[in-house]
Amino acid sequence: MDLRKLKTLIDLVSESNVSELEITEADGKVRIVKQSTAPAMVMAAHYPGQPMAHPAPAAPVAAAAPAAPVAEVITGHVVKSPMVGTFYRASNPGAKALADVGTVIKKGQSVCIIEAMKIMNEIESDVDGTVTKVFVENGQAVEYGQPLFIIE
């Protein structure tokens, strides 16, 4: 695998929500892991006929360093962003949020607005239930498929 291709893969991982990428090709295997405190880095690369490359040892971790985040178990229905844009909780500034934790939602009811290319798109719930979690802050950029709400 050439250096340009490897750099492109590292850049893609560092700029995306992907935390780990492993690619195996005929000429070798590469595994890229994004760490929360550092940009993406090549963890191991092995090419047939060459000795196994080992990553440089990591700096010692201070005793006061926060623990790695624990994966959260999600129960209920996740409402995901159908597009890339800017997330808004209300129809205009100062208005009451369309959906907040504890709000009872009916199928087809608007839960938020996503602005994309200066067009305001109302996002509707596809299930009945109660909002139990809001993942996104007002005015935050969202990506396609990003979780917005949990409705139980």
Rank of each mutant, 00 (worst) to 15 (best):
M1P: 08
T103K: 12
V73C: 02
N92A: 15
E15C: 06
A40G: 15
Q146V: 08
D100C: 04
A63R: 09
E72L: 01
V104H: 04
E137I: 00
L12H: 06
A90T: 01
M41S: 14
K133P: 01
I23E: 12
P69Q: 06
K133F: 03
D128T: 03
G139N: 06
I105F: 11
K5E: 13
V104L: 06
V73D: 07
V142T: 06
A59Y: 01
V142A: 12
G85C: 13
A26E: 15
L3Y: 03
V79G: 02
S125K: 03
P55S: 15
A62D: 15
T24S: 14
T8P: 01
G108N: 02
G94Q: 00
V30Y: 12
H54D: 13
E124P: 09
R4V: 07
G139P: 06
P48K: 00
A99E: 14
L12E: 11
G49K: 02
K133H: 02
V18T: 12
T132P: 05
V61S: 12
Q140R: 01
M83W: 15
V13G: 11
S125Q: 03
P82M: 13
A58K: 04
D100Q: 06
V73Q: 06
F135Y: 06
P51K: 11
S91K: 15
N121L: 08
K106N: 12
A99S: 14
K107Y: 00
L12R: 05
P66L: 03
Q109L: 12
P39T: 08
V111R: 05
A58S: 12
A65K: 05
R89I: 04
T86N: 14
V79K: 00
G129C: 04
E22S: 13
S125F: 05
K7G: 08
P60R: 01
E152C: 05
P51H: 11
A90F: 00
T132C: 03
G85A: 13
E15F: 02
K96G: 04
A64T: 07
P147G: 13
V84F: 14
H54T: 08
T130M: 04
I32N: 08
I114R: 09
A63K: 09
T8K: 08
T75H: 05
A26N: 12
I10C: 14
G76S: 02
P93W: 10
